[in-house]
Nucleic acid binder design. Sequence first.
DNA 1: TATTGTTATACTCTATAACTATA
DNA 2: TATAGTTATAGAGTATAACAATA
Lengths: 156, 156
Amino acid sequence: MTRPAPSVPSAAPTPAPDPAQLMDRLAQAAAAYYRNFAAVAAGRGLTLMQGKMLSLLRRPMPMRTLADLLACDASNVTGIVDRLEARDLVRREADPTDRRVKLVLLTDAGRRTVEEIRAELLADLSGLESLDEPDRHALLRLLGRVFPADGTRPPR
Amino acid sequence: MTRPAPSVPSAAPTPAPDPAQLMDRLAQAAAAYYRNFAAVAAGRGLTLMQGKMLSLLRRPMPMRTLADLLACDASNVTGIVDRLEARDLVRREADPTDRRVKLVLLTDAGRRTVEEIRAELLADLSGLESLDEPDRHALLRLLGRVFPADGTRPPR
DNA sequence: TATTGTTATACTCTATAACTATA
DNA sequence: TATAGTTATAGAGTATAACAATA
């Protein structure tokens, strides 16, 4: 992949990316992702955390698991679920196998909201659809290298 | 860049990533980045927003600019700067060219803190250093595709 | 004894609205 | 008139500590 000599003095003459630069770009990307997410959630009167929690509830989950996934203290989950429950987006249900735990699950309205949020997010990430197959695989592979899959959850 | 055929039956037979899957992976990566960042900041008694603001201050900035970069209302910046100033990590300074604006700048202690945070973050992102040159360029390019550079700041 | 969820508390972040001092 | 920064306010997120119910 030889490149023609730039006819115009190029602003970025092959940046030679070092880890620090890459980290800055990751920070920028992560910020952009959440700015986007927060805006979409706000469009439905939801906070970032409320939107995150809804998006996590693909299946019923103990509150404790939600605390782990949201990386916050268990005591916070009570309030967040309270507010979502007051808006009829989630419900609490007893766990038959362990009477200490309460399962949180989406209501029909909650499921609809999650679908709308996901669709809107996807529309905003139009750059994703423009990637060809090799680029999609490359992105998936590189993200896996930088953020190993099990790094998502602390061991507890 | 041809790849050798896998000699072992691969556990994931080429997932054929669609945009929705990619978005989920991006969400996971962004969450991992901020969990990391928040933990490093917390190790120094700083909140996520305080750490973000410090990291933004590579040069003195008007509070208004900080509000834009942090994607929050200008009224919030007052409090965040107040708390950082109380800990002698930043200072407020008058802008000679416009007496309405106050420039926020790092103190020496603030600069040290930023350097420590960046070093610790880089150490945690060891996956970045393990990338070879082509992979680094690919990651930079793909992030640019998905999150266009000027998407960082609203036009104002 | 350990774990789950809740409550009380204090602090931080957040947007809105109203204010001042500049421009 | 418009903009930069502040203040007051109310709501939401946050960790800590203590508690009841259950394992």
